[in-house]
Design a protein around this nucleic acid. Structure first.
Lengths: 333, 333
DNA sequence: ATGAAAGCGCTAACAG
DNA sequence: CTGTTAGCGCTTTCAT
């Protein structure tokens, strides 16, 4: 492997000149630049990442803390990761993948100068990892809004607005017998931030309209969705509309509705809260509020870069929900 | 941040002694060790990863090249990633996440000494990335068997044996009117290695038994599965058994069979090739050949470590398929 | 516009 | 069993 000194020698300049050609941090005569660039090409020179980070105190890598439970929401997780990874490359950054169930890993990556900033996903309302994160005194971004962000940057969908929007849309269509099928009991039990905020929005809107908000959790499976439909129909026999915030249960919900003689899009309006492609890929294309997961990953990187560059203050970015009508909703006569 | 020199001073020893306490590469008196460890604790010392990699030419990180298309097989991808990430930690390695659609990224990571080895997934039969990988002269492991591994280590399920096993199991149950629903036309068109090998095994077994092998691709969606069932039933009206190698199409396949009055487990035996949890989470628990994706990720790391340590030669590890009977198969009278 | 040189924090000979 | 020291390859003052 050629070093910066090899390049300098080949180009007949000093090492610092090569360094500055690479970083652009001072002006170089066109002629010198050309010679250096030629030498770089000839020798196929690549800066040594470790040496660079040792001298510059920048690693050009981001840590991404991901939940690798393989059970729920895999699709959404992958979209976050995709957004982060691609946007990181736009900033010429690399991504170090840390797993949630190795809590020491986060600390290690930060304190051994492996990364310039951390991005953490799957944030709970009172996430115990946040104090630890703050202690590290490193730029950090949360994908998911906790109760108290403690001065960290955050990106998330405005789930409360989404809850209101879903309910209001159904009300506008003439539905009053509405229920919500939410995430697994575990997720709700963990006080996961997004789940609770969606419920809050849904409930407040329902109550304002004078209709009692019915909520059922569902296990993240076909059977889970089907069971939830059964419980919902028992609690609200006249049901004409459903909000579903549980990707994995969606197929079961739709099948069960059909089998109960109350097909989605015909007898029951269904609004899903999930990535658009998931809504489209069901038995019938679902009216949905999009969860723009790729976009959120991208924004997380932008927020991290702003903190690294030290220009910007921490920022909380809530995305405005977008509802797209497809075939699962109808006007209730 | 405390440095190794701070620790040495605090413990009243030389820097090399601290280094050796940390690496265990030479013997240290119990007393000295204790003093050093105390100093490390006091100062909360963490080795600087860049400095370490500069001096030792080891980065203690693995590159994982992942396909981030968010469309198909997300579940399997996540399982590979999970296996790699967790096993890497067992070896005290970290994971740098590279995306497939940034082909230069692989080269960059390798040539700028960011990683000690590379793991690449989603390998095609004639994968154009393999020559490039070989050129890097770095330890590399493929998850997926190409036609010519070019001396790289490989881990994969023995898909050909799996194809044979599925067909043979159905024959043993008395089925002769069998068809296979495979991956998307695109995947098949790309000559994806695993898809073709499965077909080969299935075909050879079918032909040996004197029954014509019927194969239909399916788009990776509910509708895709349903359509494929339609086509299969047209080609083989007396169908009594189905092998399905397409996770995302599975729900559509099962629903369509039901709607055609040929329910899975009753009129049609179904064997799925997918991760066990996917097989279990369907409308009805499916008899399946497991795709042990987490395990494959783990093995990939082990193979990579063996190459890094330089002890072992490259190795091709094909896992023996395991069939688990559940509720979707029955003996054909 | 360019060069010289002092580190950055660690490892691994070499020396005892 | 321990210490001294020469790098590892790069960035960034300080000089000119």
């Amino acid at each position: 492997m050629a070093t910066i000194n090899d390049v300098a020698r080949a180009a007949g300049v000093s090492t610092s000149t090569v360094s500055y050609v690479l970083s652009g941090k001072r002006s170089i005569s066109a002629e010198t630049r050309a010679r250096v660039e030629e030498a770089i090409r000839q020798l196929d020179y690549r800066p040594h990442a470790g040496a660079r980070s040792l001298a510059s105190r920048r690693t050009w890598t981001l840590a991404l803390v991901a939940p690798l439970r393989t059970d729920v929401n895999v699709g959404v997780i992958m979209k976050f990761v995709t957004g982060v990874a691609t946007r990181a490359r736009d900033h010429e950054m690399d991504v170090l993948l840390l797993t949630q169930d190795d809590p020491r890993g986060v600390e290690r990556a930060a304190t051994s100068s492996m990364v310039d900033a951390l991005i953490m996903m799957d944030i709970e309302a009172e996430d115990p990892r946040i104090p630890t994160l703050v202690e590290l005194h490193r730029p950090a971004v949360l994908i998911g809004l906790p109760d108290d962000p403690r001065g960290l940057s955050v990106v998330d969908l405005d789930f409360e607005a989404a809850g209101r929007m879903a309910m209001q849309h159904l009300l506008d269509l003439g539905h009053t017998e509405v229920a919500l099928i939410g995430p697994t009991p575990t997720v709700l039990g963990r006080h996961t931030s997004y789940a609770e905020r969606l419920l809050r929005g849904y409930r407040s809107c329902a109550e304002a309209a004078g209709t009692e908000p019915v909520v059922e959790p569902a296990e993240a499976s076909h059977a889970g969705g089907a069971d939830a439909v059964g419980r919902v129909l028992r609690r609200r026999p006249e049901l004409t509309a459903l909000v579903v915030h549980n990707e994995a249960a969606l197929p079961g919900v739709l099948t069960a509705l059909g089998e109960a003689g109350r097909p989605a899009g015909k007898a029951v309006s269904v609004i899903a809260l999930c990535p658009a492609d998931v809504a489209v890929g069901q038995q019938l294309p679902l009216t949905s509020i999009d969860l723009p997961a790729v976009r959120m990953g991208e924004i997380a990187v932008d927020l991290a870069m702003a903190r690294i560059e030290g220009i910007e203050d921490p920022e909380i970015r809530l995305l405005v929900p977008q509802l797209t009508e497809r075939d699962s909703t109808f006007r209730q006569p």
